[in-house]
Design a protein around this nucleic acid. Structure first.
Lengths: 369, 369
DNA sequence: GCTTGTACTTGAAACGCATCAAAGGGGCCG
DNA sequence: CGGCCCCTTTGATGCGTTTCAAGTACAAGC
C-alpha cells in the first residue's frame, strides 16, 4: 500500500505537479473545472498531503502546541479549552501533549513541538520557576501559563495571591474567628495563596490563623487526616473556618468532619481553591475560588499571535488574569458555563438563589457555605 | 533569530553534516570525543532538529495521534490516559487533538495526523457509524474507539449492551417494580444500553418499564425536567427506579426529585451510565456503570502496535472491553484510582463499606442507592 | 613495506512538497 | 492580422534531514 504522492495525482489528472499543489493551497488560482478534476483525482486515489513535506517546504504551520502537566485536572482542561477556541478563531490548529507530571517528558514534548515548525508553543510548566531559559531563546514563540517568574518571556497566570485574599475576605464576611489553612505550599501558586490570605488577615489581628501542613501531595486523604484531627479537638480549639489550599484537600476535610459528626457548614465552614470540578464530587460540594483557566488559555494564544504578528515583539510580557475579586468570579463562572465542565444548570440555580444574599466573590456551588 | 540547522552545527564543530546526524540518531557509531564535541556545539548554538525534515527523510515517527470529540468528558480523558501510558511504554509519543464535537474538525485532525507520518491514529468518533471508510483505507494504522460498526477496520469499544444489562440487574436486585429509563438514544452506544436493559428485563415481565425521551442533548436540565415530571405524578404511578442513559441525565433527575421533596434513594432510586466524574458533582453522588475508558485507550494502542509490527495484519478486529459485569466494575474502579480522576480515597471508603453488602456490579460512589 | 581489517567520517542523493519566475493560451483592441 | 494583457499552468529549485555507499586513517599482521 504505497503512499500516494502529489506527483501521482498530477500524472493521473494530467496536470502538472505545481497545479495540484495550487489546488491544495491556492484553489482560487485555478479554473473551477481544473480544480474539480484534481479534487476528484485526489479523492479517487486517496491522496493525503504529507505534512512533513509541506512544512519543510512551506515554513511554519498554522498550528500551536500545548504541553500540559496532566489531562485529568480541570484547570488544565479549561486552559486547553480556552486555547483551542482562541486558536481556531485565528485559523490555527491546537495539538496537545500530556507531560504526565514528568519533567523529562515535558521537555521532550516542548522540543518536539518547537522542532515541528509549530507557529507557537504553550506550556503549563511543572513547578520549576527557573524553567528552561534555553527553550525561551528558541526562535519559536513560547508562552508559559499559570506561572510567573523573573526570566524574560511571556507569561499568563492567575493571580494566586488575589485568590487567597478572596478566600480570606469571604471568611471575614462570614464572621470567622479562627481560620485553619490546610495544605503544603509546595508550589509557588500555593505559596501565593497563603500569602494572600495572610495579607488580608493582617487587617484583622483579632482573627486567629493557623496553617497546617497536609503532607507532600495534598491529597484528599491528607485532607481527611487533617479533618479528623480538627474534629478531635475540643470545641473551643476548633476553627470555625477551614481553607483547603486545593479543592481536593478541602474535599477531604469536609468528608472527615461530616464523618465525625461535625456539621458543615453549621459548626465549621470549609472553602477550597482551584475551581477543580473533579473535586466537587460525591457529597462534597465546595465553595471555591476558581482561577480563570479558560481565560488563561485564551490569553496565551493571544500572546502567541502577538509574537507572530509583530515583527519585533516585546521581550517580556506578564499577564495576570483575575487579579480582582470580581474578575475571578465572573470569568470562572462564565468559563464553567461555557465549557459545560460542571452541571451548568445547577450552577445557574445556585447563583440565582445566592445572588441577593451576598456579593460573594467566590463561586458558591452548594449549600455548604 | 535565524534557525540553527544541522549544517551550522557541522561547520561550527568542524565535522561533516552526516556526522552530526549520526550524533543525533546513532550516537554509538561515533567516537566519544566527537560525540561530546558535537553535543557541546549543539547546546551552544541552541540547535533543535527540524522534525519535519527528519520525518520527511526518515519515514514514520514514533508517535501516535488521538482525536477526541471533547476534552472535558471524563471518559475521553480516561481513554487519553490509557493510550498515553501504553504508548509511552512502547516508546511512542502521543499527541491529542480536540475535535470539539465538530465533524469537520475531526476529519481535519485525522487527516492532519495521517499526513504527519504518524505511526498510527486513534479516534473516538462522533456518532457516525459509517464513519469515513475512506480514511480506513489510508496506509496508516487507524483504530476506532468506543464504536462498533460493520465496516472493516479496528475497533475497541465498551460493551454498552452489557452496561444496560448490569443496570437492569441492579434494579432487579433492588426489588424494582417500575423502571423509568430517561434519555434519548441518539447514539448507537445509548441504543445498546437501552437494548441491554430490555433484554435483561425480558425475563421479568412483572417489572414495568417506561422509556422517556429527554430532548436532543441529554443535558442535566433535560434530566431535571423529567425528574420534575416524575415527581409530579401520583405516588402510585411513580417509578421506584430511574435509569439515566447518561450520568448527566441521572444527575439532573436526582436534583429535581430532591428539590420536589422526593427521597432519593428512599422513595426512588436513581442510577446512571458513563462513569463520568464530571456529573458526580455537587449533591449528586451517583451509582453508575463506568465503561473502562482507560482500558479502551490501552487496547487501542495495542491494536496500533499490532498493525505496525505485523506485516500483514488482520483486516478487521473488534475488541469489546468489559463485556461481563465483573470486568466493567473492576477495570473502571481500577482506572479511576490510577488516574486519581475522582477522590480515590472516598471511593476506597465507599467500597469498603459496600463490599459485604452486595456483589454490586456497578460502582457505588455514594449513599444514594 | 604491504595487505587486510577496523573504526570512523564523509557527502551526495532522496524524502514530498510549496514556491515562483517563466511559459502558454486566449481574448480584446487597434 | 499583430500586439498586448490577463488568466492559468508549468517545472526547476530548495526546504533540513536521514541514509548509505564510499572514503580516510590508523593499527595489526605478515
Amino acid at each position: 500500500m504505497a503512499k500516494v504522492k502529489i506527483s501521482d495525482v498530477a500524472r493521473e489528472a494530467g496536470v502538472s505537479l505545481g497545479t495540484v499543489s495550487n489546488a491544495l493551497n491556492h484553489p482560487e488560482k485555478l479554473r473551477p473545472e481544473t480544480l474539480k478534476l484534481i479534487n476528484e483525482t485526489i479523492n479517487r486515489l486517496g491522496y493525503l498531503p504529507n505534512q512533513s513535506a509541506r512544512q519543510l517546504a512551506g515554513g511554519a504551520t498554522k498550528s500551536f502546541g500545548l504541553v500540559l502537566p496532566r489531562l485529568d485536572h480541570g484547570f488544565s482542561l479549561q486552559i486547553a479549552s480556552g486555547a483551542h477556541n482562541e486558536a481556531r478563531k485565528h485559523g490555527y490548529d491546537l495539538l496537545i501533549a500530556n507531560a504526565d507530571n514528568d519533567d523529562i517528558l515535558e521537555d521532550h514534548y516542548l522540543r518536539y513541538f518547537m522542532g515541528t515548525q509549530m507557529s507557537g508553543v504553550m506550556v503549563q510548566p511543572m513547578a520549576s520557576p527557573d524553567w528552561h531559559p534555553a527553550l525561551t531563546k528558541m526562535p519559536v514563540p513560547i508562552v508559559h501559563l499559570d506561572i510567573h517568574c523573573s526570566e524574560p518571556g511571556y507569561y499568563v497566570a492567575a493571580d494566586n495571591e488575589a485568590q487567597g485574599r478572596i478566600i480570606a475576605e469571604l471568611a471575614i464576611a462570614r464572621g470567622a474567628h479562627h481560620i485553619v489553612v490546610v495544605g503544603r505550599a509546595a508550589f509557588m501558586q500555593l505559596t501565593l495563596r497563603v500569602l494572600g490570605i495572610h495579607k488580608a488577615l493582617a487587617l484583622h489581628p483579632d482573627i486567629k490563623i493557623e496553617v497546617i501542613d497536609a503532607g507532600e501531595w495534598n491529597t484528599a486523604a491528607d485532607g481527611y487526616g487533617i479533618g479528623t484531627q480538627i474534629a478531635a479537638r475540643p470545641a473551643d480549639e476548633r476553627p470555625d473556618f477551614v481553607v483547603g489550599l486545593t479543592d481536593v484537600l478541602a474535599s477531604g476535610v469536609i468528608s472527615a468532619l461530616v464523618d465525625k459528626g461535625i456539621a458543615v457548614p453549621g459548626q465549621v465552614r470549609v472553602a477550597g481553591c482551584d475551581g477543580n470540578p473533579l473535586a466537587w464530587s460525591g457529597s462534597v460540594p465546595l465553595t471555591t475560588v476558581a482561577p480563570p483557566g479558560y481565560e488563561i488559555g485564551r490569553k496565551g494564544v493571544q500572546l502567541l499571535m502577538e509574537q507572530i504578528e509583530n515583527k519585533a515583539p516585546a521581550k517580556t510580557k506578564h499577564i495576570r488574569v483575575g487579579s480582582t475579586a470580581r474578575t475571578v468570579t465572573a470569568v470562572a463562572a462564565e468559563d464553567i458555563n461555557r465549557q459545560e465542565l460542571v452541571r451548568p444548570f445547577l450552577l445557574e440555580r445556585a447563583s440565582t438563589q445566592a445572588s441577593s444574599q451576598t456579593d460573594a466573590t467566590a463561586i458558591n456551588l452548594g449549600a455548604y457555605l
